[in-house]
Amino acid sequence: MDSLIAASGLGPALDLLALSPPGWGGNLLRGLVNSIQIALGAFGLGLLIGLLGAYGKLYGGPVIRDLLAVYTTIVRAVPELILILILYYAVTDALNQFLVASGYARIQISGVMAGIAVLGIVQGAYATEVLRGAILAVPAGQIEAARAFGMPPVMLARRITLPAMLAFALPGLANLWLIATKDTALLAVVGFAELTLETRQAAGATKAYFTFFLAAGLLYLLISLVSGQVFGWLERRARRGEPGVGGGGR
């Protein structure tokens, strides 16, 4: 095995990627864990905002609808990088001013929390549109039937609307999850130690740019491929019992 590695000329690259300190593999993995943590948090927050936003856009009054339209339009028209900067500075600043005004000490918001909050707000705008479309795709008769039986709104959402819309929402949500994992890379610009920034530091320190960037690319690709499988399985599960339309069952 050792001779094979030596023959392939990969020896130095593998030494650089070793997990313990002379190698930088441990740093990359720590960055990966940070990235996944933020992506999960942002996706969850985005789902929550999206669900509220979708219901607000569909069933809310005219004021709520217009406010939500402003929110989704602005977030989708301004680059994520700029939203991250604005929200990062503004949220930290506003929170600290509020704390100081009410007599507490200033706090330093951790990078993870700020990243989750910012990316969650961005994801929420896209999730609103995805979920709104999915809810609209649920046959109106099913919702009307549940209402006719006197189901209260929350139970109706839990038992009828949400399970029935899941199959329509999953492809869009899968896309959003992939966007979330890739948008964590943007936090490198505000100096948060996620995978891309760790990679750049490792590459800068060792001058082995290709080794580290390709290794990080492989890690991101792995996340995409694994989550593609997971979402494919979820969608098949959500569509079970549906008559075969549009090549649903592979």
Binding site: K182, Y220, L221
Partner: peptide, 12 residues
């Protein structure tokens, strides 16, 4: 291309 962040591709 779709599975890796653009920032990483750019820096690579």
């Amino acid at each position: 291309i779709r599975g890796t962040p653009l920032l990483l591709q750019l820096w690579l």
